[in-house]
Design a protein around this nucleic acid. Sequence first.
DNA 1: TAGATTGTTAATCGATTAACAATC
DNA 2: TAGATTGTTAATCGATTAACAATC
Lengths: 221, 221
Amino acid sequence: MIHEISDLTLRRFPKYIYILRSMQRKGQEYTSASELSRFLDIHHTQIRKDLALTGVRGIPKRGHRVDSLLRACIEFLDWDNLTDACLVGVGNMGSALLNYEGFAQSGLQIVAAFDSDPEKIDKRINNIKVYPIEKLKDVIGILEVKIAILTTPAKNSQKLTNEMVAAGIQGIWNFTPKKLVVPENVVVENMDIYPALAALLGKVRNVNTINPNGPVEFDQE
Amino acid sequence: MIHEISDLTLRRFPKYIYILRSMQRKGQEYTSASELSRFLDIHHTQIRKDLALTGVRGIPKRGHRVDSLLRACIEFLDWDNLTDACLVGVGNMGSALLNYEGFAQSGLQIVAAFDSDPEKIDKRINNIKVYPIEKLKDVIGILEVKIAILTTPAKNSQKLTNEMVAAGIQGIWNFTPKKLVVPENVVVENMDIYPALAALLGKVRNVNTINPNGPVEFDQE
DNA sequence: TAGATTGTTAATCGATTAACAATC
DNA sequence: TAGATTGTTAATCGATTAACAATC
């Protein structure tokens, strides 16, 4: 029986990869679950379970070779194969993502962008061509893109989503605050910043409420 | 005994606020936990528990008044009071955030930005002044800012974090992939896009693995 | 060898969901 | 009234953490 890999598990792997890459750059040969745990605030048992999913075996007392462990993690996420994506909505956030350098190392390649502003159409941003939004369906169909990044104003997000789904999109990275309605075989990953903002402000308040004057210092003098 | 409000709870409230605002715009007078549940994919029992935290009481068979419920949710997150923040690193992502229109409605006001590029210093983006990074400590001290948004390259993130903490920052919204080390009274909210990307690509793969040919259609002919 | 580390199984913890009486 | 909705308590579920034998 194949177990579905849980969302939380998938989210931990990029953190392993990030640390392992920096270890590799520094020439470190071996690492252990306990060492990764110290750097990441993830319990060492959790890390062992995750790494076991990739099939690697560690050596007691020594741990894992950094390079083979890194390779295993990258393969586990399939980040050694680039998945094509398109980006819809070339505003501030969209441009920022089009200029991101890290995607190529993370399994993603943006091959087309769409916008409704005639000023932007047919321009290239970071060598990615901006198509008119009317051509959404055609271009997605021709390029056979399965992943879309949605960075439009929230207003049209559902309409565009419907078009994208009709054109064959299977996964949407949603940067708008709107919940998208999609068929069950289409996946949505919400990248809404407001829940994160609420969590940040709320946690700062939690800290201040529980411990309103900060750490108590013993006033010598 | 005061219960600390959990992270997941805090993250749900912006979703309630978002829906309630659009209901209010449409002039809808009443809503119910069950209705919100349909729009949000959150269990109705969960919603009732959350709303109970704000102190509102619903009316059986009728639900809640949209306007008073919205007000209660906003007060619960303290979004009716603006918290000052500064932004460190005016790159693509930083500029996108400086131009965000939604923060004022979400309890956040960015009052200063910092960068090391002389081209950017002393310019204004969306009326927010860009200071030289060397003045980080002074400006944060003078303006008494407690929240920082970190959108620099990952390289210097820990060094800048140390400076910000020394200057009195209590909460950091971290857009870099690096895990920041901070004292326990400082809160970090990670807005790393790679875990989200891994989750999206992984979930699309999950769907295709479990159901490789999409939904089975009964071919009538 | 001694001890650090692995990998697995069991216990704990917290969030989500189910069940149900109360109420307008 | 009948029935939809509320709000609470109990059950379930899954993730995290603890415990521990195996091993180099």
